[in-house]
Amino acid sequence: MLAFVRFSHVRGLLGHNIKAIQIANVTSFLIAIVGIIGLNLVASVQQTVNIHVHVAGAILALGLTPIYCALQMYLSGKFISAGYYGKCKVLFVFRLFLCIICSVCCGGLLLFVSVEGFTYLYTPTSDERTVYYMCTSSEYIMTSAFFTFLLTLTKEFSTINVTIFVEMINGQQLTIEE
């Protein structure tokens, strides 16, 4: 829902007449959908049941996070340059910092998994514990930075009023406002 509201917000304010904005907006929306599918895979399939499906879901959910953050930073920069929300240089630099943290943690996570393989997720031996803790720490730091990044979007979301129109088949109309 959040991704669709952000997609509609960007489309409504900036439009899709500039090709770069349209590509960034649609790509970030598709990445959000793929990330949601990955989160569902991780939550639905335990690592002890099917490690490959669990890891594929984790890669979909966590691996695309830095790209999503970079695209949203680009779109927020376009908001600032178009005159919306004033000059938010400090907020933009903070988002850049969070995006760098996500990128470094994602790279570290992929490096640790490629070095050790997927076996560390079951029961790590004493030699594998360091890699196990590094992977787990990277995951938690990355998700914390990503959620903090999403919280920085509250300035943009504070100006949105969501209204949903539902038209029934028999012609009646129902309006829901949040």
Rank of each mutant, 00 (worst) to 15 (best):
F4N: 06
R6Y: 01
S8W: 05
V10M: 11
V10W: 09
R11I: 04
G12I: 09
L13Y: 12
G15F: 04
H16T: 03
N17F: 01
A20D: 08
Q22N: 06
Q22I: 00
Q22C: 03
A32Y: 04
I37E: 00
G38T: 02
L39K: 07
L39R: 03
L39W: 08
N40E: 06
V42E: 00
S44C: 05
Q47W: 10
T48G: 14
I51E: 08
H52Y: 14
V53N: 01
V53T: 08
G57H: 00
A61G: 04
P66Q: 06
P66C: 06
I67V: 14
Y68D: 04
Y68M: 09
C69L: 03
Q72H: 15
L75S: 08
S76K: 11
S76T: 09
S76N: 14
S76L: 13
S76H: 12
G77D: 10
Y85F: 15
K87L: 01
R95F: 00
F97V: 13
C99E: 08
C102A: 12
C106D: 01
C106F: 00
G108P: 04
L109K: 00
S114L: 12
S114E: 07
E116Y: 08
F118E: 11
Y120V: 15
Y122Q: 15
T123S: 12
P124Y: 11
S126N: 04
S126E: 08
D127S: 12
E128D: 09
E128N: 10
R129I: 14
V131A: 15
Y132D: 13
M134A: 15
T136Y: 13
S137I: 09
S138T: 04
E139N: 10
I141M: 11
T143K: 02
T143D: 04
A145E: 01
A145I: 00
F147T: 08
T148E: 00
L153P: 00
L153I: 02
T154R: 12
K155F: 07
S158Q: 15
T159Y: 08
N161E: 15
N161P: 04
I164F: 11
I164V: 15
F165D: 12
F165Y: 10
F165W: 11
F165S: 12
V166T: 14
E167N: 10
E167A: 05
M168K: 13
I169G: 00
N170L: 10
G171E: 04
Q173W: 01
T175C: 10
I176H: 07
I176E: 02
I176L: 14
E178K: 08
